[in-house]
């Protein structure tokens, strides 16, 4: 028996080859996805970012069998989503941030019951899985609440639980944290990290929030006008565009500029050094470490942290890729 390459290399869980998708609006023809080629291996966590209308949702729809590619190839879990949509649906969980997959007029627990039946889960197994997800996502109190009465944060956690009910190999999240408050975002991210740690679920998510990318993803794809503008690690992205966070520190007394803080760069100092701004790379150090270093030198009265703006990051990537 010969050992082929396919026996050794794992099949990518997502694979696109020269994927193209055109839309026609009247006589005009626009290209939403333009010769996109990439592969995602099982177990990866990939952030898929780009401006509005860059082609993110269109790609996801082609990967899940909702849209037919104009040309090129899309494979999800090794399957053709157009021909094997149902088989793909068994192995993939999808959350479209703006569109609910729950039954809005029924108590939340009924949506879980129905979805378990739709996926033909064994009742005992479904119950255990639901209980675990409800527990981890802290949704027990909402089980009897009609979906339409849930808050946005509660609904999003419910959507994610619903998408994970059948223990999919691949979880696709389209804008999962949009509109959520800081606390809800954090709980959601912690849950996703834990879920991936336990089950090794592959994650593909689109987002406008750099925090999602930093805390959840080990790889980033940036799409610009339907084309792949960047494919690499978060560190690579930061190195390319300098996706630094800004620590704004108010000090008790006027202090000379805080040069030479470990792994941080002084941006500016104002009011005789009462307020100073330090930039740092979140992949290299933490806000706490920077703060500790500063505290050794001066008394800190107040501080704020400014996250890098994903739109800025994307814009800078676009400038780089379009310029070259």
């Amino acid at each position: 028996m010969t050992v082929t390459r396919a026996d050794i290399a794992p099949t990518p869980i997502i694979e696109t080859q020269d994927l193209v998708r055109d839309f026609r609006r009247g006589a005009r023809r626009t290209r939403a996805v333009d010769h996109m080629t990439f592969a995602i291996q099982p177990g990866e966590a990939v952030g898929y970012i780009g401006a509005n209308g860059a082609g993110k949702s269109t790609t996801i729809k082609m990967l899940t069998g909702i849209l037919k590619p104009t040309s090129g190839r899309a494979r999800t879990c090794g399957l053709d989503p157009m021909r094997q949509r149902i088989e793909v649906a068994r192995q993939v969980g999808v959350v479209f941030g703006q569109r609910s997959q729950l039954w809005w007029d029924l108590p939340l627990h009924e949506s879980f019951t129905i979805l378990a039946a739709i996926h033909r889960l064994d009742p005992a197994e479904a119950q255990a899985r639901t209980a675990r997800l409800v527990d981890q996502l802290e949704m027990g109190p909402q089980l009897d609440t009609p979906v339409r009465s849930l808050s946005l944060g509660q609904r999003m956690r419910a959507e994610i639980a619903a998408a994970l009910l059948h223990s999919p190999r691949l979880l696709i999240l389209d804008e999962p944290t949009i509109g959520l408050d800081v606390l809800s975002k954090q709980r959601l991210r912690e849950f996703l990290v834990e879920e991936r740690r336990q089950r090794g679920t592959t994650l593909l998510l689109t987002t406008h929030d750099m925090g999602d990318i930093e805390r959840l993803c080990d790889r980033v794809l940036v799409v610009d006008r339907g084309r792949l503008a960047f494919d690499g690690t978060l560190q690579g992205l930061a190195a390319t565009v300098g996706a630094e966070r800004l620590l704004v520190i108010d000090l008790a007394v006027p202090t000379p500029p805080l040069e030479g803080v470990q792994r941080a760069r002084l941006v500016d100092s104002e009011s005789d050094g009462l307020r100073q701004r330090l930039a740092f790379d979140a992949t290299q150090t933490t806000a706490a470490a920077v703060l500790a270093d500063v505290s050794r030198r001066a008394e800190v009265r107040d501080l704020t942290i400014e996250e890098p703006n994903i739109e800025d990051v994307v814009r800078r990537i676009y400038a780089t890729s379009r310029g070259s």
Binding site: K61, T64, G65, I66, R85, I86, E87, A89, R90, V92, V94, F96, Q98, R99, S100, Q101, I118, H119
Partner: peptide, 13 residues
């Protein structure tokens, strides 16, 4: 309402 997309990602005809 986008319900139709939810139908596509469920394993039923």
């Amino acid at each position: 309402a986008g319900t139709i997309d939810a139908f596509y990602v469920r394993p039923l005809p």
